[in-house]
Nucleic acid binder design. Structure first.
Length: 297
DNA sequence: AATTAGTCCAACCGCGAGTTT
DNA sequence: GAAACTCGCGGTTGGACTAAT
């Protein structure tokens, strides 16, 4: 997925990962308490220096992870509800494996938790429903196929963890192929976004709690910039533009979460392509879906 | 009861990107 | 402008637990 740059190939390993004497493995209640006390007093951030100041023999990365995924007061524990599950599926369909973005839309859930839940539950659930968990397109069983390519595609699609891929191999036909090879996950979300921003009369202000949530996620903007979403992040230093884009994107996401969005999206992109998709239900025009009024509702 | 296989999830790792020096 | 530093992300691992044999 990531292509190592020349600089990263030669980059020395960060000391925090290799430093001798640092503790690893599961956290003890004492360590948790030290971390919680420190963060509640000093706030999040400065993870590099935090362990020393907090009296922990952990690397900063480990502290950050522990705080973010477990100790943060906002972290919701317990079972993921059917509503949350449904939301995860929809967001994954839209965003792919961008777990932090998905988590950002589900209050109290962490990216790690959602990623784990996806890999252990939802991907299998989708497969059992005949849906490819990677592309959200229907699976087609093709017992006659012996193409190595088909094996590769299928294995790739389910290889989010090595164990899961082998498990799937036990339960599912590896000759299963993904139909519609034209499908490019990123394209599906980029194109409607581009349209929405072109046609959008920016209100210039944040009008929903979700927008606040998104405003803090400049990583999101970076991701879309990477994917050539130049319109969305025309100038990342322009706060007003970013605020606007965040609002637009948040609004757009909200509209996508409504299950009637996807049909229109598919038609918009593929023209005459009529894919079966259980998530696609209505033919509401895209321009109507990206209605700024929604933000006030 | 012992062993093996499968499941789950907290934690680790490598990397890219942004920021600071 | 380059190098070093820092943060955050997604993929992966490993160990605890449970179910099946």
């Amino acid at each position: 997925m990531r292509i190592p740059s020349a600089s990263s190939r030669t980059k020395v390993v960060t000391p925090c990962c290799t430093k001798i004497g640092l503790k690893r493995g599961p956290w003890t209640p004492e360590e948790d308490e030290l971390l919680m006390n420190y963060v509640s007093k000093e706030g999040e951030g400065r993870w590099r220096t935090l362990p020393k100041k907090a009296g922990l023999f952990r690397c900063g990365k480990s502290c950050r992870l522990r705080w973010m995924n477990y100790l943060r007061p906002s972290v919701k524990r317990g079972h993921i509800s059917p509503d949350e599950e449904d939301l995860i599926v929809r967001l994954h369909r839209l965003l792919g494996n961008r777990w932090s973005l998905i988590a950002g839309r589900i209050p109290g859930r962490t990216d790690n938790e959602i990623k784990n839940y996806w890999n252990t539950h939802l991907s299998k659930k989708l497969i059992s429903q005949g849906i490819d968990p990677r592309t959200h397109k229907p699976l087609i069983l093709n017992p006659n196929s012996s193409s190595d390519d088909n094996h590769i595609i299928t294995k790739k699609a389910y290889s989010s963890s090595p164990s899961s891929s082998s498990k799937l191999a036990n339960n599912y036909d590896l000759n299963t192929i993904i139909p519609n090879p034209i499908y490019i996950p990123n394209f599906q979300m980029k194109e409607p976004l581009r349209s929405s921003i072109n046609n959008y009369n920016c209100p210039g202000e944040i009008t929903s709690p979700d927008d606040y949530q998104y405003q803090s996620s400049n990583v999101m903007l970076a991701n879309y910039h990477d994917d050539n979403m130049n319109i969305l992040v025309h100038d990342e230093r322009d706060d007003e533009m970013n605020c606007c884009a965040d609002g637009v994107f948040s609004s757009f996401l909200n509209s996508l979460i409504n299950e009637d969005m996807f049909n229109c999206q598919n038609q918009h992109i593929n023209g005459t392509l009529q894919d079966f998709d259980p998530f696609m239900a209505s033919s509401t025009p895209l321009s109507d879906q990206i209605n700024p009024k929604r933000m006030d509702e």
